[in-house]
Each structure stands twice: as structure tokens, then as C-alpha cells.
């Protein structure tokens, strides 16, 4: 959806999470690069959703089926448990109703994969502490008045939200500039966090 970020979460890391031959829905799929990788390396049946026409065009160019739509309108068209995986890659922080969307993701997907920039990482904390200014750095390259990011959270915030929503966390991948780090120090050091969430459909398999 927004590609001004200097780095994105490692697509290879996401690909490793995907069982071969499964179906994948990517919310905010951007230019379809992740879906292309999943299709080509995991033999996945893929579909994307994005709001921008230019991104739809890029997806079609890659032969990826895509729906132009607004995630803020929800996923009511999608049946419960209709996808093996519903992914939201770098998009959580730009949607208006993240809680509703996460609930929808675990309804539609047998497994949901969410990744987002960890606002609680050390650099952000230092910028706020030392300069008293909103963090602007290579992971968050936007000024406060000109940012698509309207719902930042820290890793710990997200864990808390999952607890409140009673969504089981299957596993996490914590990255610091594209290198995996331990979950123990992740809230302070991770620049990117990825959560694998268990779908709420009763017959979802135990992963």
C-alpha cells in the first residue's frame, strides 16, 4: 500500500511460514511481490487486496489476481475459514479499524499473519526521550503530519491486544533490520515484528 519504507519485512521469512499448496489472501498486497514469491516458491493459490489502482496494475502484470478495495470496509465478502492464510504485511498501522480487521482476519483465515513496525524499539524511544520529537528514522520515514501510519503500536501492545481478543499467538518472528532476534529483548530491539495467529474457525487445523 505504501512503499516509502526503506526496508520491508523479509518476505522469505513469511514464505517459510506458508505450507506448500495453501491458499493465501494478502490484505494491502501492494505490488504483489510477496504473493508472487508465495505462488512461485510455495505453490500457493494467491489473491491480493489493495486500494491503489497503480498497485492493481502491478499485480496484474505479475499475473496475480487482485481486488481493488478498501480494507476499512472489512472482509464481509469472504467466508469463514475460506483461506489457509490471511496476511497483513506492513498494513496494520494504516487501517482505521485494526481491531475489527484482526478479528476478521482470524475469521477468514485458518491462520493469520500480521507484521508491523515495532514503535517500541530503542531508536524511537531515544528520539522521543532525547529530542522530545516524534521519531523519524529509516524505519519510520514520515513526519507526523504527513504519514499513512495512524495506528502505531509496540510489540508488547500487540501481545496485549491478542490477549484481550483471546486470539492464540502461534509464534512470532522478531527482526532487527532484517536479522532475527530473540523474542525476549524484542520489544526494545526489534524494528519489525511478525505474529502468527490462530484462526477462530472451529475446524482450523492445529499448526
Amino acid at each position: 500500500m505504501f512503499n516509502r519504507r526503506a526496508e520491508h519485512f523479509s518476505y522469505e521469512e513469511i514464505a517459510r511460514l506458508i505450507e506448500p499448496g495453501s491458499s493465501v489472501l494478502d490484505l494491502g498486497c501492494g505490488n504483489g511481490e510477496l504473493l508472487q514469491l508465495l505462488r512461485d516458491t510455495r505453490n500457493a493459490t494467491v489473491r491480493g487486496v489493495d486500494i491503489e489502482e497503480s498497485m492493481i496494475r502491478e499485480c496484474l502484470k505479475k499475473g496475480i489476481s487482485v481486488f481493488q478495495g478498501n480494507l476499512d470496509e472489512g472482509l464481509k465478502e469472504y467466508g469463514s475459514g475460506s483461506y489457509d492464510y490471511v496476511i497483513m504485511n506492513e498494513t496494520l498501522q494504516v487501517v482505521h479499524q485494526p481491531v475489527q480487521l484482526i478479528r476478521e482476519m482470524v475469521r477468514v483465515g485458518r491462520t493469520a499473519i500480521v507484521n508491523f513496525p515495532n514503535f517500541g524499539n530503542l531508536v524511537n524511544r531515544m528520539q522521543l526521550l532525547v529530542w522530545g520529537r516524534m521519531p523519524v528514522n529509516r524505519d519510520i520515514p514520515y513526519q507526523w503530519y504527513d504519514t499513512p501510519n495512524i495506528h502505531f503500536c509496540t510489540r508488547r501492545d500487540f501481545v496485549q491486544l491478542c490477549r484481550e481478543m483471546a486470539i492464540p499467538i502461534i509464534s512470532t518472528i522478531d527482526m532487527r533490520h532484517n536479522r532475527r532476534i530473540s523474542p525476549k529483548t524484542a520489544n526494545l530491539l526489534a524494528t519489525e515484528c511478525c505474529f502468527l495467529l490462530k484462526g477462530s474457525t472451529p475446524d482450523a487445523p492445529i499448526v
Binding site: E53, I56, C59, S65, F67, Q68, G69, E77, S82
Partner: peptide
Amino acid sequence: MVVALMRQEKDVSYVEID
């Protein structure tokens, strides 16, 4: 139409040109 196709798990792309 697109949503009905999606429900039937058909391969469909949709774009709304502004």
C-alpha cells in the same frame, strides 16, 4: 458480480478506475 465469483472461489480480479 465479483463478490459472487469470489464466493464461488473463481479466479477474478476487480479494478475500479477513477
